[in-house]
Amino acid sequence: METTLNYLREGQCARIKTLRMQGAMRRRLLDFGLIEGTRIRCLGCSPAGDPVLYCVRGTVLALRRQDSRCIAVETEP
């Protein structure tokens, strides 16, 4: 099912479809290897609910919801 990254629940996995953003943030995410087809797993959110932790290519990243909203993903069943 296609959705955006911020809707991923803890433990859920998805594959990146597109990065709907430009400029510095887009470059930064590409550096971390977030390209189309990359598998990403949600590890859970911070006590305040934002930012949220994800695991990509063996790295643990924290992303704010305002950013993860702009990342389209395809959830894995």
Binding site: A24, M25, R28, F32, V60, L61, A62
Partner: peptide, 11 residues
């Protein structure tokens, strides 16, 4: 506005 932000949590 607060800009975007990626933080890596190392092991």
């Amino acid at each position: 506005e607060p800009s975007s932000f990626v933080l890596e949590l190392p092991p």
